[in-house]
Design a protein around this nucleic acid. Structure first.
Length: 426
RNA sequence: GGAGGCGUGGCAGAGCGGCCGAAUGCGCCGGUUUUGAAAACCGGUUUGGGGCAACUCAACGGGGGUUCGAAUCCCUCCGCCUCCGCCA
């Protein structure tokens, strides 16, 4: 969330940012509550001060004077209690409004309502041309007996799948390659829980708002299945004050991800493009509160993932995500969209996000700067590889006419040195 | 799942319902001393809100209650530890 003082002093900027993001929120209402809060707070402070010193007098008073003092204290107590009740209500109201006031998008974020307004930054690699029948990942996988979507549905409902044989192998290969790539860059590998308490989801900005997209256990546990390891990893140091020399924290996590995909009926129903469960390698950076540094880190995490795509010979483009397609906590986001011949289009495979201190403030994630002041960290994250969409891209871009699939050189060590997967068909 | 114990500042560890935002030790920062370092000695060292400031208020796992007054008493939730049971 944004700092209350910042909102107060930059109301127009905050409103313009919300408008650019197409987010409805009540900035004026928040500011009104904030000023009421300060007024009530000051009065309450005074009353408590009176109560405190009067209490000390009572302790030392003689038996004759004590009843009168007690009587006066009761009046203070009554007034204070009423005041605190109002203050509590005001603070709750503020909190509710503050949680949905979005972060201010960067000037470089394009205007626009949805993903069709995202702006292409660059294209890398050539879309392959085939001199044989163009088939999509479903067809390729089915010919090799690699994919069973019906079995996925029987086991777990729609948007589930079973990978079999070489495709299951390829999934492991691409994830391990991505993991190793980040570890070689000095990122610390993590294995983290994905069944989470609500706090990390609020802290990273998924809640409020994302509840419908998130699986929840029943009220015996009140835990949530996160859609990305960004949530537990960014929240790893919540409520801590890190030492300056511990920053930046650079983490890479490999986890399963769970998404309800509510409200997407009929969208991307074929194949494994939009599914409830997949595997993902994610990079997360926690660093000092310095905008220029954050921008630099943003480019670095984008570059890390582009290196993976280039090593896998996959054609992609980078888009600058427009205001209307940005999330509440984001300052700016670059997506990598990978060419998917079966869709005859680019499909989103990566999201590189920069938040400044928006998540850190919600999380209580802080550090002590060189002057000894406590500051909120800046946070960033990017996908390194998400299993299902990478598999689509690998199958569809690297297919051969005989039904087999080429393994890019970088992945060969992970599949026992093989250059191709599957056996020739027809 | 059953029984019991415990949650205090970076760590360890005191704390009678008012004199406790909190003893003491360690650590850390600054100073004295020293050629330099160590040791010793002196001083400083939680976080958050409000205020230009002096300053003030809040917080002793979270929430609620009792009381004129709660770190201290009661309830509840969360977490940790020990023992028993069950299980990957």
């Amino acid at each position: 969330m944004l700092d209350a003082k910042f909102i107060r002093q930059n109301a127009d900027l905050v409103k313009a940012g919300a408008k650019k993001k197409r987010v409805a929120c009540d900035v004026d209402g928040f500011i009104a509550l904030d000023s009421e809060r300060r007024e009530l707070g000051q009065r309450a402070d005074e009353l408590r001060s009176v109560q405190k010193s009067a209490g000390k007098d009572i302790a030392q008073a003689s038996n004759e004077e004590r009843p009168a003092l007690l009587e006066a204290q009761k009046a203070v107590k009554t007034e204070l209690k009423a005041l605190e009740e109002r203050l509590g209500a005001v603070e709750t109201g503020m909190r509710d409004l503050q949680l949905v006031i979005p972060n201010v998008p960067a000037d470089e974020v394009p205007e626009g309502a949805d993903d069709t307004d995202n702006v292409e930054v660059r294209r890398v690699g050539e879309a392959p041309s085939f001199d044989f029948e163009a088939v999509d990942h479903i067809e390729i996988a089915n010919r090799q007996g690699w994919l069973d979507i019906e079995a996925g549905a029987r086991l777990a409902g729609s948007r589930n799948y079973v990978l079999i044989g070489d495709l299951a192998l390829l999934e492991g290969a691409v994830l391990q390659f991505a993991f190793d790539h980040m570890i070689a860059k000095g990122f610390v590998p993590l294995s983290v829980p994905m069944l989470l308490r609500p706090e990390p989801l609020y802290g990273t900005g998924y809640f409020p708002g994302g509840e419908e997209q998130t699986y929840r256990t029943d009220d015996r546990d009140d835990l949530y299945l996160a859609g990305t390891s960004e949530v537990p990893v960014t929240a790893l140091h919540a409520d801590q004050i890190l030492a300056l020399e511990d920053l930046p924290k650079r983490y890479v996590a490999r986890t399963t991800c769970y998404r309800r995909e509510a409200g997407t009926y009929g969208k991307d129903t074929k194949g494994i493009y939009r599914v409830h469960q997949f595997q993902k390698v994610e990079q997360v950076i926690l660093d000092v509160a310095d905008e220029a540094n954050s921008i630099e880190q943003h480019h670095a995490i984008l570059r890390n993932s582009e290196e993976v795509m280039q090593a896998l010979d996959l054609p992609y483009r980078v888009v600058n995500v427009c205001g209307g397609d940005l999330g509440v906590p984001h300052v700016q986001k670059f997506d990598i969209e990978t060419w998917m011949p079966g869709r005859d289009a680019f499909g989103e495979t990566h999201s590189a996000s920069r938040f400044y201190d928006y998540q850190a403030r919600r999380l209580g994630l802080r550090y002590r700067d060189a002057e000894g002041r406590v500051q909120h960290c800046h946070t960033l994250n990017n996908t390194v590889a998400a299993s299902t969409r990478m598999l689509i891209a690998l199958l569809e871009n690297h297919k051969w006419g005989d039904g087999t699939v080429r393994v890019p050189e970088a992945l060969r060590p992970y599949v026992g040195g093989r250059e191709g997967l599957g056996r020739p068909v027809e």
